[in-house]
């Protein structure tokens, strides 16, 4: 056995946090998928060498402080308005890379109009959508994506579909629009899931480079504080309850709906 001191040397380093993540301590709860999702996006931008050409937009939600952590030029937007802000940036700087980083309340409730229309126009941007089925920042209220029966502080007896409406599959919805080119649903709870998500983010920036329209990546994630579980337990709960309703995988690739999803959208 080698001594640890002999292993821990600069030349043996195989993985460390990208320099595109700042050294600020993340404001997220322990075990929250936001940190992992942030790092994946920053790793891709770093590996593609796009730091100087990328503008990120994070609106209101837990990730409103994303600019404290992402070491690129960032714009903080009003609640739900990131797609409009991104349109303003991208239309005036069509050769720069622009992404939004939005939560479920932001993208699928207050900003639904902006989401639908940015996708319908096919702006050449990348949208990262964190879906944890709850409003984390304001303390665990019901989100548009909250599952049936799921307890939140504004659905304390569980989401009742009759009075509170149905969980919204906005990703399937926007995939129907001609302006979307690549639509996928991923997660960041396991090493394999992280690797797949990173591949998806790479593809999304490639699509943006080729100016083919919207690339949209939903990341189903945990909210252990909002769900009132330990981080590991919340990831297990997510696999058990969120994944059946929000299934993993590509929904639209190269502008074409993936077959399995075509069937699902109809049913």
């Amino acid at each position: 056995m080698m001594d640890i001191k002999d292993i821990v040397k600069e030349e043996n380093l195989v993985y460390t946090k990208t320099k595109l993540m700042t050294d600020n301590i993340l404001s997220y709860c322990p075990g929250c998928g936001h940190g992992t999702a942030h790092r994946i996006v920053m790793e891709v931008i770093d590996e593609l060498g796009l730091q100087s050409q990328t503008v990120g937009i994070a609106p209101v939600g837990c990730s409103v402080l994303a600019y404290d952590f992402m070491n690129i030029d960032m714009i903080q937007a009003a609640h739900g308005r990131a797609p409009a802000v991104a349109t303003g940036v991208k239309r005036t700087m069509p050769d720069k890379y622009v992404f939004t980083y939005q939560g479920d309340g932001d993208l699928a409730a207050i900003g639904t109009a902006e989401t639908i229309h940015v996708c319908n126009r096919g702006e050449n941007i990348t949208m990262i959508f964190i879906n944890n089925g709850i409003y984390g920042m304001t303390g665990g209220q019901m989100a548009p994506t909250t599952l049936e029966g799921m307890k939140t502080s504004t659905s304390p007896y569980g989401r009742d579909l009759k009075s509170m409406g149905n969980p919204l599959k906005i990703t399937e919805l926007i995939a129907q629009l001609p302006g979307t080119y690549y639509v996928t649903r991923q997660a960041v709870h396991t090493p394999a899931a992280v690797r797949k998500t990173k591949k998806a983010v790479f593809k999304a920036f490639e699509v943006q480079k080729e100016k083919k329209g919207i690339s949209f990546i939903e990341i189903v994630s945990n909210c252990n504080s909002g769900w009132k579980m330990s981080p590991v337990k919340s990831n297990e709960w997510m696999v058990e309850h969120m994944f059946p309703f929000y299934p993993m995988g590509d929904i639209k690739v190269d502008g074409e709906l993936v077959k399995s999803n075509k069937a699902e959208v109809k049913s």
Partner: peptide, 9 residues
């Protein structure tokens, strides 16, 4: 790679 806070090298 799964560490949300990126604290592991």
């Amino acid at each position: 790679i799964v560490c949300p806070d990126g604290v592991i090298s």
